[in-house]
Design a protein around this nucleic acid. Structure first.
Length: 507
RNA sequence: GGCCCGUUCGUCUAGUUGGUUAGGACGCAAGAUUUUCAUUCUUGAAAUCAGGGGUUCGAGUCCCCUACGGGCUACCA
């Protein structure tokens, strides 16, 4: 029986989504779309203590910006809702009860302080306390208490949690689409809390119940979930849902580029690149973390970058649109080891995307920047500047630094260039060239020829003349073809800049 | 500590029935082009395939051990 492919991306609204999460969402999206399946956005907000206002909106905005489209879920709707776990709260208890009734789970009354004390006690003996098949008999739960006592406690409203009762000495197999068969012995696994004393399920219960009721066919998530996958497999078994259990694929982690460890939200700008898709303003601390969008990355570039972190198509082409990725993506080409983020490569990707964009689009973006700088110029002029100069930048934000002299006359002249190129006779030659330009038709080729002729007939050093000439226009030894620049600046401005250079530059 | 996962150039990676000068990309270096800077192009350096044992005529590719890295070990996800 071939089930319809249904995948979910299920973040917790505990803060901004970081790029590892974004990549998980992407892979889910690729897989779903490739198989004509559904992509679900579920918000896992069962931990009320970690809720962060604005996080959910942030997640949706980020995914929308990147072009990851959902078929169902928070903000979209669908036939399997609600899609926020907090709104599904009433339905989880019956499932916890079901497991108790079938002997797969039990009530536990141990207080948090008691468990802490227990852990400390073990720690003192250099051991680790685990609530499992070996220790549960020494704890305060419905396995050790009499039925009457359990009933009395429940009736009196005493807080309790529901724990999964792992069978002893059972080999549990998790079939992972990326890693193959992963085996674990149940004796080593602890009796995880499924249902918390605040009436909310934990991730484990809610996840399985939701995936089942939402008919999720594939669970594609981070590798940090692999250790609890056996619990999840056992839960499907306990509920009798084995035949529709989703297939698992645990993705390798995104690692810190410098030292070791998985990339975390806290790494922030310390690493020199954003870890968040969008800029994030922490409502509590007021701290601002940079985002790819605000840094000037194009969403298509970010998608491309992330897609290639932990996966590759096995062909030499590296630039792919999101739709192409949907076509070419495959789970079995995902690598098993963690990937470090490479800022330089990320910039290169953005550079490629910027080059491929229509000049019109870049010009519009650049105009926003110009406006903020209080620079005014006609759209056609900006467009010409972009056409001429965009190949040298990776971000629109770098354009100004490369092109400011198109808009503003230099106010300073690079001393190093003066030292190297500005000679005693330079002002006189430039004055002469200025005169020539005044009388020659203001056309690129003709100006070029006229200036060249002057240089040649006077047997001058071309590099010296051209560079000092450039210095008066740009203020530095950089920029496009000189006559290209002159044509753009216009006759009046060119001559004015030349004169100013002649007047002010001193050896 | 325990359990699980992993390990090919600095980085991302190709390598999928064992036989490759171990390929590409980013970055780096050099050269070419240019009036400058950048772009672009060409070339180059860069992995004894973590190490050690096997199996085999032959291993990056299969097996084992070790080391190292990572994850998990909460009434967090």
């Amino acid at each position: 029986m071939d089930r319809k492919v249904r995948v979910r991306f299920a973040p917790s609204p505990t803060g901004p989504l970081h790029i590892g999460g974004v990549r998980t969402a992407l892979y889910n999206y690729f897989f779903a779309k490739q198989n004509g399946g559904d992509m679900i956005l579920r918000i896992e907000d069962t931990d009320q203590t970690r809720f962060v206002p604005g996080a959910e909106d942030y997640i949706i905005e980020a995914l929308t910006w990147l072009g990851i489209k959902f078929d169902e879920g928070v903000g979209i709707g669908g036939n399997y809702g609600p899609y926020r776990q907090s709104e599904r709260k009433p339905m989880y208890k019956q499932y916890a009860d079901q497991l108790i009734a079938t002997g797969w789970a039990y009530y536990a009354f141990d207080k948090p302080e008691e468990l802490d004390a227990k852990r400390k006690e073990y720690e003192a003996q250099k051991k680790t306390f685990q609530y499992d098949c070996n220790t549960r008999k020494d704890m305060c739960n419905s396995l050790t208490l009499s039925a009457d006592e359990v009933k009395r406690r429940l009736d009196s409203g005493e807080p309790y949690v529901v724990r999964f009762k792992f069978p002893s000495d059972t080999e549990i197999h998790v079939h992972d689409l990326i890693r193959g068969e992963v085996k674990m012995n149940s004796n080593l696994l602890d009796d995880k809390v499924l249902f918390k004393s605040d009436g909310m399920p934990t991730y484990h219960l809610a996840n399985i119940v939701d995936d089942h009721t939402m008919e999720v066919s594939h669970v594609i998530r981070g590798e940090e979930w692999l250790p609890s996958a056996p619990l999840h497999v056992m839960l499907y078994k306990a509920f009798g849902w084995e035949d529709t259990m989703p297939q698992f694929a645990h993705l390798p982690l995104l690692l810190k580029p410098d030292g070791n460890g998985k990339l975390s939200k806290r790494d922030g700008d310390r690493l020199g690149f954003p870890v968040f898709p969008l800029e994030w303003h922490d409502p509590k601390s007021g701290e601002v973390s940079s985002g790819y969008r605000e840094k000037g990355y194009f969403p298509e570039a970010v998608v491309n970058i992330l897609a290639f972190l932990g996966w590759n198509p096995g062909v030499e082409q590296e630039i792919f649109s999101i739709d192409e990725l949907v076509t070419i993506f495959s789970l079995d080409r995902i690598s098993k080891s963690g990937a470090k983020f490479d800022v330089e490569k990320a910039k290169w990707f953005n550079h490629k995307y910027l080059q491929a964009k229509p000049n019109e689009e870049i010009a519009t973006l650049f105009e926003n920047d110009l406006q903020q700088r209080g620079v005014t110029a006609s759209h056609d002029y900006v467009l010409s500047v972009v056409a001429l100069m965009k190949e040298r930048v990776s971000f629109v934000s770098e354009l100004w630094e490369q092109t400011h002299y198109f808009f503003q006359a230099p106010t300073e002249y690079d001393p190093a260039v003066i030292k190297k190129r500005w000679k005693e006779d330079t002002p006189a030659h430039l004055a002469k060239i200025k005169e020539i330009l005044q009388n020659v038709p203001f056309e690129k080729q003709q100006m070029h020829d006229a200036v060249m002729e002057y240089i040649q007939s006077n047997e001058l050093n071309m590099g010296q003349i051209m560079n000092s000439f450039r210095l008066t226009l740009v203020g530095a030894a950089k920029g496009p073809d000189l006559f290209e620049l002159i044509t753009m600046l216009g006759k009046e401005e060119t001559l004015a800049r030349m004169q100013r250079g002649i007047d002010t530059i001193k050896i």
